[in-house]
């Protein structure tokens, strides 16, 4: 057997368990969900022909984009510093950034709720700035959901970026500077470009987790939070309209997959 064929066989063997689990526990149920969405009165046209539901979809996608941007802007400098920190505390600092993930979403959301009420610290700060009306509160607002969700997803962005930035050879930056690039230009041309895999992976993780988030949007956004996952929950458990819930889930999957693929392609083309 030629070496290449053997390598292919080994690769297939290594992939097989994961592929099997994926097919069994993800693809098959998804297919079942899709079949269910076709039962009864038309579900897809009901969703796509209704401005209200399209608004819910738009809300979820906007939430995903906002949270991704916030975590990227806040996370990149931090991940960069942590990756470059020449201290034995770096590991501990990285560990500290993951703290939000250690607390249950429900407990964390309750803490945010206390800060977001009209008399809570966060709402008070905004009221004091004069940018918002005096009885403004962050609870029940889109901005509140973005803040609370960005907090919990920030560690995921940081850890992903950290691993990638840490793998970038610093000599490449030095070489660029040696050839006359300022540190800023070297950062832009070399480091950021090499880190784009991490940016892509981190963004996709944060985006997909945001558009499908349930606990935080439902608790912080309250009843006025019309997001996809909350709507699916309502249709499944409160109204028992399973075909419609399945259709919403399928639409969410297709839309967020296409957003992710487009984003990945854009970032990939840039690199060439």
């Amino acid at each position: 057997m030629p070496a290449s064929a053997r390598r292919g066989l080994i690769a297939a063997g290594l992939l097989a368990p994961a592929a099997l689990v994926f097919a069994l526990l993800f693809l098959w149920p998804q297919f079942g969900l899709f079949l269910q969405s076709l039962e009864g009165p038309p579900t897809y046209s009901r969703f796509l022909g209704d401005g209200y539901y399209l608004g819910v979809l738009g809300n979820s996608l906007l939430l995903g984009v906002c949270v991704t941007l916030v975590t990227l802007v806040l996370g990149f400098p931090l991940a960069f510093l942590l990756a470059r920190a020449e201290t034995r505390w770096a590991g501990l600092l990285l560990l500290l950034t993951t703290f939000p993930l250690w607390v249950s979403a429900v407990v964390r959301s309750f803490a945010w709720m206390v800060l977001f009420f009209r008399s809570g610290v966060a709402s008070r700060l905004l009221q004091g700035s004069g940018l918002v009306p005096p009885d403004f509160q962050l609870i029940g607002t889109f901005a509140g959901v973005v803040i609370a969700l960005a907090q919990v997803l920030l560690p995921i962005m940081i850890v992903t970026l950290y691993a990638v930035i840490r793998g970038i050879d610093r000599d490449l930056e030095h070489a660029a500077m040696n050839l006359g690039a300022s540190p800023a230009v070297a950062l832009w041309l070399v480091t950021l470009r090499l880190a784009r895999g991490g940016v892509l992976a981190g963004s996709l993780l944060v985006f997909s987790l945001s558009v499908s988030a349930f606990a935080t949007p439902s608790m912080i956004g309250g009843a006025r939070a019309h997001f996809m996952a909350v709507t699916i929950y309502e249709q499944t458990l409160e109204l028992l309209d399973w075909p419609f819930a399945a259709a919403i889930a399928a639409i969410l999957l297709v839309i967020s997959l296409s957003v992710a693929l487009t984003y990945g392609r854009l970032l990939g083309e840039r690199a060439r």
């Binding site: 709720m113 609870i139 029940g140 608790m219 309250g222 009843a223 006025r224």
Partner: peptide, 12 residues
């Protein structure tokens, strides 16, 4: 008004 979903929020 504040519209809430779960009983757990009453005390909060």
């Amino acid at each position: 008004a504040n519209i809430f979903r779960s009983a757990a929020e009453v005390q909060t």
